[in-house]
């Protein structure tokens, strides 16, 4: 029951996991691998700088020098798409980590303690589910002033209910298992039971959830950039690029389609991996 993802006992199993991986999930892992590579070494590979203007060239369609063509300011779309990987990974990772911490603490406490605490946490979760998150973010950012950090903070608050609900459910399940009862009988403090004994068992589920949250956060952040409320103008962020080259659809469609396609591919890969992990873990009797 206490095997960890990547623990010594899981290693033997991992090969089996990969063999039974459906093609789409394998492709998703591959795609995310490429993204990580581009995030690390992209600037070395990109043929042009992300902001290097080339007004003499102006707008061009895809050609030998500019693989995806250039936008109206003569910036190379291919290079900007590569530079965009960093923005696409950085913000969502911050949000996922923030939501992971909040969701685990609240979910563990609510699931283990029950009672009033549980009732109020779940009320809050229900409320957040019904709220159109992105619209709330738009309003708050609009009123408080546009800033990337604020967008990240608001999205952490809006994402954490997903984690909280899942973790609470699994904690409820674990609470009644003999090992928890044994720990309680031994007089271990609640904090030790929660974090040293229950937490390792629910880690795989929160790990699966992190992928789903990543997809949500990426989509939300790029939507904010698209509306001009996230990251500053001129940045090589996919949402920004799409909004700036949306009107070039006739002249150089690649300028809008490349960043758009990257958003969809990244989000889809993350969702597929998250779903697949969920299913695998559910098979082992740890359903949500």
């Amino acid at each position: 029951m206490t095997t960890l993802v990547g623990g010594p006992r899981a290693r033997g199993r991992r090969r089996l996991l990969l063999r039974s991986t459906p093609l789409t999930v394998a492709l998703s892992f591959g795609f995310i691998g490429i993204l990580l590579f581009l995030a690390a070494f992209g600037p070395l590979l990109a043929p042009h700088g992300p902001g290097s203007l080339n007004l003499a060239t102006g707008l061009t369609t895809p050609n030998g020098e500019f693989w995806f063509g250039t936008d109206d300011l003569g910036r190379d779309v291919f290079s900007r798409t590569i530079y965009g990987v960093r923005y696409a990974l950085f913000g969502p990772v911050l949000i996922v980590v923030g939501a992971f911490v909040i969701g685990n603490v609240l979910g563990l406490a609510a699931g283990y303690r029950g009672g009033m605490l549980d009732a109020s946490v779940m009320r809050w979760v229900d409320l957040m589910y019904a709220v159109p998150g992105l619209l709330v973010t738009i309003v708050l950012i609009g009123v408080l002033g546009a800033s990337y950090l604020l967008a990240v903070v608001v999205l952490v608050v809006l994402t954490s209910p997903f984690d909280t609900r899942v973790i609470r459910g699994v904690t409820l399940e674990q609470r009644s298992l003999p090992y928890v009862e044994a720990a309680r009988t031994l007089g271990l403090p609640v904090r030790a039971i929660l974090f040293r004994h229950i937490f390792p068992n629910i880690l795989p589920i929160s790990f699966a959830n992190a992928f789903l949250n990543f997809a949500f956060s990426l989509v939300a952040l790029s939507a904010l950039s698209f509306l001009g409320l996230g990251i500053g103008p001129g940045t090589a962020d996919w949402g920004r690029m799409l909004s700036e080259s949306r009107l070039l659809l006739f002249e150089n469609p690649a300028a809008a389609l490349a960043p758009g396609g990257m958003i969809v591919l990244t989000a889809t890969s993350m969702n597929l991996i998250g779903d697949w992990l969920y299913d695998r873990l559910a098979d082992r009797g740890r359903a949500r």
Binding site: A223, G260, V264, N271
Partner: peptide
């Protein structure tokens, strides 16, 4: 698959692709 892609595509990307 269609539903996974649909759930992962922000409306502005879908919109731009359909427009194209």
């Amino acid at each position: 698959s269609l539903s996974v892609v649909g759930a992962s595509s922000p409306a502005f990307v879908t919109g731009v692709f359909l427009l194209y």
